[in-house]
Design a protein around this nucleic acid. Structure first.
Lengths: 337, 337
DNA sequence: TTGTAGGCGTTATCAG
DNA sequence: CTGATAACGCCTACAA
């Protein structure tokens, strides 16, 4: 029983031809009910399982999609992958995972490997260190659907699923203003990634909309970790006129800020409010739970999958869909006076 | 340039046969250096990329491995997947992801789908609700290597990579004893999963080794979430002689316990110590950081991948390797008086 | 050293 | 309705 049974085995057992077996198995209308039933039964009896590799070679569709992310164990990305998988699995697609470690060379490598593996599409979030776009254009040349989620590059023919980072930044900042904060600082990331630029723009707009002047020294670009948050907030506190609130583009940076503020004996939220970004799981579990912007990553993954599906459906027409999801402000203790 | 170039295209361009091209591309010794060079150059010029599907069909090896986990966005599992991917990618393998949602029927479904896709191996963690083992035996019948990580079923011919849960439970409990705790409770999980049973056994052994009697009412089986932790610890506090420490098999349950203790105004760690299990990322970020048992999931993933590789290397000999990793106790604030 | 031919498992096309 | 045949892209005896 360890041998794989093929449609030939079934054909032989039934004294018919493999073509007929194939037809029976595939609900082809041109087949008698009798033989169909017979084939089905013996197929079950012989424990036949379709070899998807052969089908893939024949049809040119592998029913695999490649997903490329910086690190799979970052909650934001694993949640997106979860969404993609859950949307695609019922339709017979499998998800192949690749990690870039934020390296452009690895990203290029991944794309080539996935293309060789004949994936039906590539869904990805661009790595931080990526500057070129040749490898993306190469994917398009091959007529393989390409969908960017969260981190994107602007390219003709590529669909994208993002959240409205501007809106997220705006709401977070407005919330702080509503809480009565007067001197709101912003901890941002590298602006070569649009997401950070957009969050900053939202912050800026919210301030000006409410008649608050933007202070250059209140905006600091940092890496996305706790240490960076500690250092940046220390710098802010040393200012002649220190801020009374921080909107951070990263939950980790926000956490670092909170830790530093506590070290200085500053009371949160009464004296100082903090808002993060991403709704990382830990933000909810903190004793002083953190207000943050939720990006609904599972939904983002599902949406990316849907966009991909539309693309394969009408592979003749070039679709270039830009889906922008709305962020949700999760108001928690770190910002409510 | 959108057409895929095959070895036939190269052959035609060079007025040689596809077989020769194939040999040149594969470093076959029986070929002249001249033609080899020529083939290589035109292959590069024509942007040839090997079709791995065709190779897979021909060779019977897809160079894909299937990984099945309950949920991909649980940090423990995504970290394991990260380890697997990082170990296998350099060798040309790709990782296909499936989620069971803890359902046995989905698990069976996933296995069949992966088998149909001709994966070279399946690495998985058994779902909580799985009772049968037929589908695992079926994998073995097909001569597809099967490796369990963390959650396993005992089966002949299956390799496993786990951590020493007994040891983890023992160390956690001994640590509490060393801290001077006298009445140590244990919040466990469903014992149909060995891991929970073993952690309990470690707890028990540590107690008896130190001359402490096991109290039945101090051991409660719960689900693995915060709410369950709150409820269970409430029950413990209502006991005529409430405990002064909790060792929990789950970080989430431990967090629920801590929250409940605080509600009662109990001071941690001075009056009460808590130790969790898994080293979920949030445990480190809590204001009162949580002592917990680290399972080094990335290492576990790498090890599972290595075991798989050994298995495919000598596919003739049936290997049944049982790797047991050592857990590490991360001592933090929730348990140090 | 190179060419020829067959096959991996399926499906699609064309006859019958 | 069913059978025969070719094709997907690659590799590998075997023959030359």
């Amino acid at each position: 029983m360890s041998e794989k049974t093929t449609i030939y085995d079934i054909a032989k057992a039934l004294n018919i031809t493999a073509a007929t077996v194939s037809r029976a198995l595939n609900n082809n209308p041109k087949i008698s009910a009798a033989t169909k039933k017979l084939v089905m039964e013996t197929a079950a009896k012989m424990n036949y399982k379709q070899n998807r590799l052969a089908l893939a070679l024949k049809s040119g569709k592998s029913n695999n999609v490649g997903v490329i992310v910086p690190y799979i164990d970052r909650n934001f990305f694993s949640a997106i992958i979860r969404g993609i998988e859950e949307e695609l699995y019922p339709l017979g697609y499998h998800v192949i995972i690749c990690q870039t470690h934020e390296q452009e060379s690895t990203e290029i490598d991944n794309i080539n490997a996935l293309l060789n593996a004949q994936v039906d599409g590539i869904l990805m979030s661009v790595s931080k260190l990526t500057t070129q776009t040749d490898h993306f254009e190469y994917v398009l040349e091959k007529n393989v659907p390409l969908v960017f989620f969260d981190r994107k590059k602007d390219l003709k023919g590529v669909s994208t699923v993002t959240i409205d980072d501007f809106e997220g930044g705006y709401r977070a900042t407005k919330h702080l203003i509503d809480q009565g904060c007067k001197r709101i600082a912003h901890l941002s990331g590298d602006w070569s990634l649009e997401i950070y630029k957009n969050r900053y723009e939202g912050y800026k707009k919210a301030l000006t909309d409410h008649g608050i002047a933007l202070k250059k020294e209140y905006v600091i670009k940092t890496k996305s970790d706790i240490r960076a948050g500690q250092k940046a907030s220390e710098k802010l506190l040393m200012l002649p006129e220190p801020p009374d609130a921080i909107f951070s583009s990263s939950d980790y940076v926000a956490l670092g800020a909170i830790q530093q503020l506590k070290k200085h004996g500053i009371k949160i939220p009464t004296e100082f409010c903090v808002v993060g970004f991403s709704n990382e799981p830990f933000t909810k579990f903190l004793e002083l739970s953190m207000t943050t912007v939720d990006q609904s990553p599972v939904e983002m993954g599902k949406m990316a999958a849907k966009v991909f599906l539309e693309q394969v459906k009408d592979s003749n027409v070039k679709i270039e869909k830009k889906v922008v999801l709305s962020p949700t402000l999760k108001i928690r203790m770190s910002s409510v006076k």
